[in-house]
Amino acid sequence: MSGEGVTLKRRAKGKRPFYFSDPDVDRLLSMIMALAGELSVTRDRLDTLERVAQEKGLFSQVDIETFALDEEALSDRSARHQTLFKEVTRIISAELEGLDDTDASDYSAVVAQVENDDA
């Protein structure tokens, strides 16, 4: 069949302009918006799920809105939130952890060491 397995070009011909003093900020922003897009796709799917459930008489959006979270559920969630924050901000906290890490500060010295420890 005509068109099977075709891969479309994803880059528009022409120099891509960057706007911030560091183009990596543009790149990051682009990735963040792509993530926001995928998050929105997932949220829309959840929304569809709720609507289908309601239409099929399984449960309704009101059931979700009025669902009472007991202490156990709240604690589980709270723990998950902490894990999430820790994961998202890992680069910030890891940098602080590394401040005391005098032995690993010269990476090339480590490379030299493992490369030459047979000498």
């Binding site: 005509s2 543009d26 922003l29 792509a34």
Partner: peptide
Amino acid sequence: SSLLRTSQEMMWSSAQIPVERTLP
């Protein structure tokens, strides 16, 4: 500008995905 340019790129990409999949 950075967001507008990105939205333009995302627009084409989002329109390309189903076309690529269903081209035949």
